[in-house]
């Protein structure tokens, strides 16, 4: 179910449709699928840490997005990630914000 809209079956997202063909289909190697989810969490973490947020896998079904103080949102897919992040932060997450880009490029905290 799409947690945001309450629409049943609305959870599929374009970023899940293809990574390597078959990764997210049910018939392929589950180890490969788990590896992809961990890779996804790790890569998201590289961006989210600039907002003080962490992402973790939840039961290989969803993701948990948390602040340093423990406020947490359940996230179905990357499509909902930024909605949840902005809700937790109370401010916009703008990939074109020069200050954010400066920190991202510097790679530091």
């Amino acid at each position: 179910m799409c947690a945001l809209c309450g629409v049943l079956g609305g959870a599929e997202h374009w970023t899940d449709a293809t990574v390597r063909p078959g990764v997210f289909t049910r018939n392929t190697d589950p180890v490969q699928r788990r590896r992809e989810r961990f890779n996804r969490v790790a890569n998201a973490g590289r961006v989210l840490r600039f907002y003080g947020l962490t992402l973790s896998d939840w039961q290989s079904a969803s993701f948990l997005l948390s602040t340093a103080t423990g406020k947490t949102e359940l996230v179905d897919n990357l499509g909902h990630l930024w909605v949840a992040a902005e809700k937790l932060l109370g401010r916009p997450c703008d990939p074109l914000d020069p200050a954010f880009l400066g920190r991202l490029e510097a790679g530091g905290d």
Binding site: T15, N39, C93, P95
Partner: peptide, 30 residues
């Protein structure tokens, strides 16, 4: 692919109204 997905979802979430169209072909790892 994941980094690209993170970026495009973030861009469209914040600026989707201003991105009238995006299309392309990507050389994806793997």
């Amino acid at each position: 692919w994941t980094l690209f997905g993170l970026w495009l979802t973030m861009l469209l979430h914040r600026h989707g109204n201003a991105v009238l169209r995006v299309k392309g072909i990507l050389n994806v790892e793997g």
